[in-house]
Structure formats: structure tokens, C-alpha cells
Design a binder for these strands. Structure first.
Lengths: 132, 132
DNA sequence: CCCATTCTACGACGCTGGTCGTAGGATGTC
DNA sequence: GACATCCTACGACCAGCGTCGTAGAATGGG
């Protein structure tokens, strides 16, 4: 039992996490620049959120340089599982099928995407029934 | 163009909406009772949220009786589409496949559910390519 | 050495969501 | 008619989130 359950990131925190997942360990400046293309928020806002994320255990920081270097502790797959699971429970009665109906209804998927979903289902079914 | 876009319900609002979807038009008392099995919140809290939902246009109320009767305006399918679409965009780069991976990973689906998703894909593919 | 720049820390503010308490009007019962 | 009960309206409160401004320490260029 070494796994701690990392708290759910807020919307702004998720955006920063996504940058860290993409870039790897980064300074506040780097994260803020990466984000400023889509968002126009102040530098200290980014800093403040990062500090809170450190308290929450979502990220870890290396303070050996003057510009602290932040690194994601929350893993992408785990965070996504958490978010999907929560919506599943709160809005879809824990029915993945119902969630997919809504998702595919909201964003019209390309035939390629549909094929990919089928492939993923194959993988899952291949794995589940005869336990490995 | 008669469809207005109803605002996104908050978590508490979604719970009340779900009761209304299940029960149909109901009084505050009825909604509160229905909810009190799982939640222990005050009567006036339910009332207040309902009032705010009225302002937001999520519900409509009939004031002809002393006990006002509330009715859902936001439709279930549309609301679910909205919620799934938002998560899809914010956390999954608009990729339904990635969302499904996370969802199925969070809640181990039964073979029946997987089959149901396949059926769903069949429906969609049957509908899209040759436009009916 | 001094000044401009860059960084962190910290407090403030506004907003929203969820919670409740209380006031006061309507209703029902004896 | 009087009283207890149920209803709505409304304001208060608190916590969390996102935003920013400013202070003050570290750094680096002339």
C-alpha cells in the first residue's frame, strides 16, 4: 500500500498538469509561456496555483535553483481515470455505455475513431475473460 | 432556432435534476424527501437551489398552489451530452477513445456493457456513412 | 558597486457554490 | 378565532477557486 490517492485537480490545475505531462519538469516561466498562447493570465497566478498544487501533492518541486523546477506527481492515466470515474458515477449511474452515448453524441467521431474504439474493446475483452 | 443553451448545472443542481427526471414535476418537499435518503441537507437548502435553478432556466415552477411545483426544463440527454462533451474537451483532447479507456479503466465493465457499447457503435456507423 | 530584472512569498479581493437561520405569510385544526 | 404547522423569501456565512498586486530576496550586466 504505497499508493496515495492524489486529490482531484481543479480545472486550472489540470491545465498546468497537462503542460507538465507534455513538457516534463519545467519552471514556472516555461509553464506560463506554454500556457499563454491559449490563456492570458498573470505570471503570479500560475505561480500561486503551482504552489497550491505542491501542497496538495499534485506536483513536486526542486528548489535547488533559484527558478524552482516543477514536476508532475499525479500521473496522466490515473488522473484521467479519476475524472472519468467521477463523471461516470455522478451523471451516468456508473454505466460506461451511457457515458459513451453522450460523448459520441456530443462530439461526432470520425470512422477512424470509431474503429479505434472497437480495437480498444477487443483489447479489453481479450484481457478480461481468461485472466491473462 | 428555438433551442436555448441551458447553463451547465452544478453538482448539487444535477442531483436535483436527476430526481426531477425520475419523478416528474414535484414539490420541494417531495424532492427533498427523495434526496434525504442519500443526503442529509436542510430543507431550505434544497429550496434555495431550486430557486437558483429557476433563475438559470434549468427548471420551471408552477406557483398556482402554495407548494410550488417544479419541473425540469433541462433535458437529461442534452445535459449528459453537455457534461460528457466538456470533460472530453478539457481532459481528453476531444478523443472519445481516450475517454472510454479511462472510463472502462475506472469502472470495470461487465461483458454485457462492453457488448452494449459495440451495439452503440453499430448504430452510429449504420447511420453515418450513407446518410440513411 | 549599483541598478534593472527576475524570482518567490504572501495577502487581498471578487465570485460562486453550498449551507443554514429566521422572518413572515398561508393553511388547517380544534 | 387562536395556535401550531408548513411554505416561501431573503440574507448571512464559509470555503474554495482564480485572479492579481506588491514586497523583498537573488541575480546579473554595466
Amino acid at each position: 500500500m504505497e499508493k496515495k490517492s492524489p486529490p482531484k485537480p481543479t480545472e486550472a490545475e489540470l491545465e498546468l498538469l497537462q503542460v507538465l505531462w507534455r513538457r516534463g519538469p519545467s519552471t514556472v516561466r516555461e509553464i506560463h509561456e506554454a500556457l499563454s498562447v491559449s490563456k492570458s493570465t498573470g505570471y503570479t497566478t500560475t505561480l500561486k496555483i503551482l504552489q497550491k498544487m505542491t501542497d496538495k501533492g499534485l506536483v513536486r518541486r526542486d528548489e535547488s535553483n533559484r527558478s524552482h523546477v516543477y514536476e508532475a506527481l499525479a500521473q496522466a492515466a490515473q488522473t484521467e481515470r479519476q475524472l472519468a470515474g467521477e463523471l461516470l458515477r455522478k451523471a451516468f449511474g456508473d454505466s460506461p455505455a451511457r457515458l459513451m452515448v453522450a460523448a459520441l453524441d456530443s462530439k461526432k467521431a470520425t470512422p477512424q475513431e470509431l474503429a479505434e474504439i472497437r480495437r480498444l474493446l477487443d483489447d479489453i475483452e481479450a484481457k478480461t475473460p481468461m485472466k491473462q
